[in-house]
Design a protein around this nucleic acid. Structure first.
Lengths: 143, 143
DNA sequence: TTATCTGCAAACCCTTTGCATTTAA
DNA sequence: TTAAATGCAAAGGGTTTGCAGATAA
């Protein structure tokens, strides 16, 4: 978290941008959440810290964070609304409950091996991958 | 294709819906295409067969096909636009070129095995999965 | 006959943009 | 001082909905 704020500050100064109060607040709130968050949800949280900050600024800051490699946008299922997650060193994938919407992150090294194999077959060089498993989570199954 | 049209007809009559000329045209054009197609693209193709059909009807028919289990909506990357693909018996995943946008479908049985393993770990029962590999395709790498 | 479908236009949702003002550097 | 950032409102893109007329059953 401390490191991420520093990374952002670096990114900002390197580009001749400005380190504003709003930017910092949005970034701090974003980094302090775990999992996935939509722009609207982040906006709600940010409002509690500083009610003057606009939704537009939240969008713009998320875009900035994405460009800085500190956030990543995702879209699950057919949802029109994008969600953002912190971009961390270790790659992970997602288990998504189709009933309650719960999302669990997991990491499975065996997947990395398979992806390289498949890619080779088609002459691709893989930069990234995404795997999503859809199903019923424990509590939804027993409920 | 013939079978899909029949499946749709069955779905329609079972629900007391009507088998209209527009519905049939949209479905036929959709089933005759391969890979992924957006509502707008499908609309363009449908126009050539019957210029009177509206975009709205294309959307509604795609929704109907999805409900009937004959189509599936997807969103690649952070794209706001959804695309539809035929829902076929054999599952497949996607290789997506980040430069030219080309999408290759592939099938890798080893993935099915891994997903079950992961799901078990978290008490999930998997119904479906989605794997997307992002990278550079052959021609984009050499270009 | 009558409930469903259609096409149009308008509404909708999420996101981005234009602009006048404010602010960091 | 001045280029960048802000917040608002308005525009944008993709999709859905309300409605009056058309149509399958």
């Amino acid at each position: 978290m401390r490191k991420r704020i520093a990374d952002l500050a670096k990114f900002i100064s390197e580009r001749g941008l400005k380190n504003t109060r709003q930017r910092e607040t949005v970034a701090e709130v974003f980094f302090s959440t775990s999992g996935h968050i939509s722009a609207e949800e982040l906006y709600q949280k940010v409002q509690k810290v500083d009610p003057g900050i606009g939704l537009t600024t939240v969008y713009r800051t998320l875009k900035l964070l994405t460009e800085a490699g500190l956030a990543k946008e995702r879209r699950f299922g057919g949802e029109p609304q994008g969600v953002f997650e912190k971009q961390d060193e270790k790659h992970h994938d997602h288990l998504i409950c189709t009933r309650c919407g719960k999302i669990i992150e997991f990491n499975e090294p065996a997947l990395e091996a398979i992806q390289d194999e498949v890619a080779k077959k088609f002459g691709f060089v893989v930069e990234d991958h995404k795997m999503e498993l859809y199903g019923l989570c424990k509590s939804c199954r027993t409920a």
